[in-house]
């Protein structure tokens, strides 16, 4: 994240041929929020919910030997923020009810990743809005995370040029933004 900002400043200076002043640098750097920390306290989710959601998300977006997955991006924090800050009261209630009815029938602790994926699939096929939302949020949370954007997707904050048509391998993946 720091690197991006430095890169913005550097290229702005190059392009404009002037040195970015301390004031303007502070402004551009200043808009930054803290990195997700491993020590966080959920605002809405309970501990068991954090564990269950993490377990499902990690199965949906497992990562590979080389690539990070949901487990590497604090996915439960993302879900907690989405729920706490952006969800309406109705959506919050729907989530809690969906969660309760899910855990009444299923216990994901002890399940293998494959068992979880089979469950996710059958739940969604059976019309579970709760599981549909968990699937969606797992992917959104991962693909909008810093590591997901930079290590799995192709991240270029300052493209500096525009080409209409290039061979796919020149990009080598999906643009993060």
């Amino acid at each position: 994240m720091k690197m991006n900002r430095r890169e913005v400043l550097k290229t702005a200076g190059l392009v404009l041929g002037y040195t970015i002043t301390a004031g303007s640098a502070a402004a551009i750097l200043g808009g930054c929020s803290a990195d997700p920390t491993p020590n966080w306290t959920p605002e809405t989710l309970k501990d068991d919910q954090v564990k269950t959601l993490e377990k499902i998300a990690n199965a949906i977006v497992p990562g590979t030997d080389q690539l990070p997955g949901a487990k590497d991006v604090n996915i439960a924090k993302f879900m907690d923020e989405r729920l706490s800050i952006y969800a309406t009261e109705e959506e919050k209630t729907a989530f809690q009810e969906g969660y309760s009815s899910f855990v009444e029938n299923h216990k994901v602790t002890g399940m293998s990743d494959q068992e979880i994926l089979d469950l996710v699939k059958s739940e969604i096929e059976n019309g579970s809005d709760f599981m549909k939302a968990v699937h969606e949020q797992s992917i959104i949370g991962f693909c909008t995370s810093e590591r997901g954007m930079k290590e799995v997707l192709v991240f270029k904050p300052i493209p500096s040029e525009q080409k209409g048509c290039v061979p796919l391998e020149e990009v080598g993946g999906i643009w993060a933004i």
Binding site: M1, S33, E81, R82, I85, I140, E146, M149
Partner: peptide, 9 residues
């Protein structure tokens, strides 16, 4: 970047 905002949005 989008991850600089809470809830990555």
């Amino acid at each position: 970047e989008v991850y600089d905002w809470p809830g990555n949005t």
